[in-house]
Design a protein around this nucleic acid. Structure first.
Lengths: 145, 145
DNA sequence: GTCTAAAACTTTAAGCTTGAAATGAATCGG
DNA sequence: CCGATTCATTTCAAGCTTAAAGTTTTAGAC
């Protein structure tokens, strides 16, 4: 194993640690301030961004979760009256999901606090740092398959 | 909401996306090549690094998971004969966990492949990139509480 | 010494997550 | 049209994860 490879491994472990710690803080914020969870927030954020509705497949692809997982989270949001399923008129396989009025209001009530939390978590990164970070992430993302 | 705050949010979302995608590839590697999971690998790696054994509390702190979670994963590893619990002689509350012979061999059989996978995932980052990344992560990590 | 608080774990209930299998629907080649 | 394949989704079993509550043990205050 090369020296470089070992350095990549250490960097990866550190990256994972920092993101997990940050996620834990966000999760705690959502639980204490809004009595909800990160997966629910993520789904609601996706539905908020695409107000016209998303298919289940689009949703799971956007969030990088399995299709069965998306089904489960949407089930619970629907049970709580925050999301809604609507069958497609043209393709009877597909289902559109969107937020209900209540879901929209609930998300709007959380979004600003969430952004403030993230702002706090990254508060030591200035514009130049953010640009550097994005550049590095873009390099990592490049398709390798 | 300031412009900078919005940029931090976008950067965070991207960071999360990239690490989740990388984690998914590692998970797939572990499943296909070694019929195991990321949490199990993480626990085994921690036990490998600290060969003399770890308490359950140390383990959950190292991995940033709840204590109940550590209990569950160690239960399964123990059932499979890969890890072992040993009560402390001086403090009857604490339990030491370590890898069995079989666990050591199993981990050694996976470690190189895992490092190669990570090397591949970060293959577009050279030494300078890695240093830049670590610097940024250190900034993020700084205590904010 | 005794009482109280803290610590180390485990247990529990609920929710999250995955991969695989199942269902039902659309598409495509012939 | 028909049969095979692909596609969108759900269901399922197993494992992961958390927060909270519970158990047992240790340590500290007095």
């Amino acid at each position: 194993m090369s020296e470089l490879s070992k350095r990549r491994l250490k960097t990866w472990i550190r990256l994972l640690g920092v993101t997990r710690a940050a996620e834990a803080e966000l999760r705690e914020f959502l639980r204490l301030q809004h009595d909800t969870t990160l997966p629910r927030f993520d789904v609601m954020a996706a539905l908020w961004r695409r107000r016209e509705g998303l298919t289940m497949s689009e949703l799971s692809r956007m969030l990088l979760v399995s299709n069965g997982n998306a089904t489960a989270v949407v089930d619970r949001l629907e049970k709580d009256g925050l999301a809604r399923r609507r069958p497609s008129e043209t393709d009877r396989r597909t289902v559109f999901v969107d937020l209900t009025e209540e879901g929209l209001r609930a998300f709007e009530g959380m979004a600003e606090g969430h952004e403030m939390e993230v702002d706090r978590l990254l508060s030591d990164l200035d514009d130049a740092d953010l640009e550097a970070m994005v550049t590095l992430l873009r390099k990592m993302k490049k398709d390798r398959k």
